[in-house]
Structure formats: C-alpha cells, structure tokens
Amino acid sequence: MLSQTSNIKRALRAELRERRRNRTSTERDAATDAFTANLVALTQQSGARLVACYLSAQNEPNTRPYLNWAFANGVRTLFPITREDGLLDWAHGDGETEEVGLFGMPEPVGELLGPIAINDADLIIVPAAAVDASGMRLGWGRGYFDKTLGSMQKCPPVYAVIYDDELLDTVPREVHDQPVNGVVTPTRVVTF
C-alpha cells in the first residue's frame, strides 16, 4: 500500500514531467547554454578535478555541452550505471559512446567501476524533478541517487540540475530522501 506522501510525489512528478515535455526546443536550447555556463562556473569555483554527473535523457536539462567542456579542460568525469540491486556502478566513459541502460536512461560505455568509485568525486551533479528551498530533492522515483548519497561516508557537494520553475517552496519528503547542497538552474547557482 502506497503512503499518502508517495501518492503526492507521484502526482507532482507527473506534472513536472509534463511541464518538461511541453518546453519548446527554443526554450530548451537557451536553457542548455545557460545550464552549461552555470555548471562550468560551479566546477571552476569548487576546484573540482573529478565530477560525477549523469548523462541527460531526452527531456532533462542537457548536460552534454558541460561534459564536453569538462573533457576538453581536463576535468575527469564519472557516470552512473544502474544496477538491478538498486545501487549505482560508475564508469569514466569516453564522452561519446553511450548505450541505453536498465530504465531507458543513457549510460556510458566504459570500464565498470564499483559503487565506491563515487567516493573519489569532488563534485556530484544529479538529476531531479524538483528541489525545495531547504535543499530537499524530489527525484524521479527509483531511489538510486538517494541510496548512493545516503551511503557515502564523506560526501562532496551535491548539486541538482533543474529549471527555475522546479525550485519549489516544499517537496514531499520520505525518510530515505537525501537533500542536495544546491541547485543549478538556467539563471543561477543556488547553494543552501
């Protein structure tokens, strides 16, 4: 039986997914340039040399231009690989070759590193459906990043990439949900 919070989350995710689908290609292209500039600024300000970042799916904020910048500027990257057991493996990837992972998400082709590879990251960039003013992240419902972040002994700064209208006053929260340290939107980088 689903809790009331789970039902509220599911309804909110559906609304946010629909909103993303309805963005025009012009809006998405302009946002991509702005996301990239803000992600580059965050990486430079943090001095990160190894960044864990997701490969964006079709309706997510596009991380690829940022990843191209990282590759060109000697910032190493780790990409998540979903596993059946709910954990994430990690791979460096070559920045070009991708395949479709377990849940239809893009994943890199490269040597599989275990779940603890994330412990070497200086900065973690995660996807989100929304984030609230306290830093609570609403993911897309599979719990991979919550499990990963919740299991880390020493977690580096974690930033979610969202559109400006996805920074909400509050999001529904369950015990396993993990907060983020900040968000990157097209117009700004917010640190909580």
Score class of each variant (00 low, 15 high):
residue 80 P to E: 05
residue 110 G to V: 04
residue 151 S to T: 12
residue 90 W to H: 14
residue 62 N to L: 10
residue 131 V to F: 12
residue 101 G to D: 02
residue 188 R to V: 00
residue 120 D to E: 12
residue 52 A to T: 07
residue 167 L to N: 08
residue 68 N to K: 15
residue 103 F to G: 10
residue 58 Q to S: 06
residue 117 A to C: 12
residue 128 A to C: 07
residue 111 E to P: 00
residue 66 Y to S: 09
residue 67 L to H: 05
residue 114 G to R: 12
residue 163 Y to K: 12
residue 119 N to E: 13
residue 83 R to V: 07
residue 140 W to G: 11
residue 168 L to R: 08
residue 79 F to S: 11
residue 137 R to P: 03
residue 176 H to L: 07
residue 81 I to L: 12
residue 106 P to I: 09
residue 157 P to D: 02
residue 163 Y to V: 09
residue 153 Q to H: 00
residue 78 L to Q: 13
residue 183 V to L: 09
residue 87 L to P: 03
residue 106 P to W: 01
residue 113 L to A: 15
residue 168 L to D: 10
residue 174 E to W: 01
residue 75 V to D: 14
residue 143 G to L: 08
residue 100 V to P: 06
residue 188 R to M: 01
residue 60 E to I: 07
residue 114 G to P: 03
residue 110 G to H: 12
residue 93 G to E: 06
residue 148 T to D: 05
residue 165 D to E: 01
residue 177 D to S: 02
residue 46 S to G: 13
residue 89 D to Y: 09
residue 89 D to S: 10
residue 89 D to H: 08
residue 133 A to V: 03
residue 46 S to L: 00
residue 109 V to C: 04
residue 178 Q to M: 12
residue 45 Q to Y: 00
residue 148 T to V: 08
residue 150 G to K: 08
residue 154 K to C: 07
residue 106 P to E: 05
residue 113 L to Q: 15
residue 162 I to Q: 06
residue 188 R to G: 09
residue 102 L to T: 02
residue 97 T to C: 10
residue 131 V to E: 10
residue 179 P to F: 00
residue 133 A to P: 01
residue 122 D to N: 14
residue 85 D to L: 00
residue 172 P to N: 02
residue 84 E to R: 14
residue 111 E to D: 14
residue 179 P to H: 01
residue 106 P to L: 01
residue 129 A to S: 08
residue 100 V to L: 11
residue 155 C to W: 09
residue 149 L to W: 03
residue 70 A to I: 11
residue 136 M to E: 07
residue 183 V to N: 02
residue 97 T to D: 10
residue 107 E to W: 05
residue 58 Q to C: 13
residue 105 M to Y: 00
residue 118 I to T: 06
residue 59 N to H: 14
residue 119 N to Q: 15
residue 86 G to S: 08
residue 137 R to V: 04
residue 51 V to K: 12
residue 86 G to C: 05
residue 111 E to G: 09
residue 129 A to R: 03
residue 154 K to V: 11
residue 128 A to K: 07
residue 135 G to T: 05
residue 184 V to A: 06
residue 128 A to H: 02
residue 157 P to W: 07
residue 108 P to N: 01
residue 149 L to M: 09
residue 145 F to H: 01
residue 157 P to V: 09
residue 136 M to Y: 11
residue 180 V to Q: 03
residue 99 E to W: 02
residue 106 P to N: 01
residue 170 T to L: 05
residue 46 S to N: 14
residue 74 G to K: 14
residue 73 N to E: 13
residue 187 T to Q: 01
residue 55 L to P: 01
residue 62 N to A: 15
residue 166 E to I: 02
residue 45 Q to N: 14
residue 75 V to T: 15
residue 71 F to C: 03
residue 149 L to S: 05
residue 134 S to L: 03
residue 62 N to E: 14
residue 141 G to S: 14
residue 182 G to K: 05
residue 148 T to I: 03
residue 89 D to G: 06
residue 128 A to W: 06
residue 150 G to D: 04
residue 71 F to A: 15
residue 83 R to T: 07
residue 45 Q to K: 15
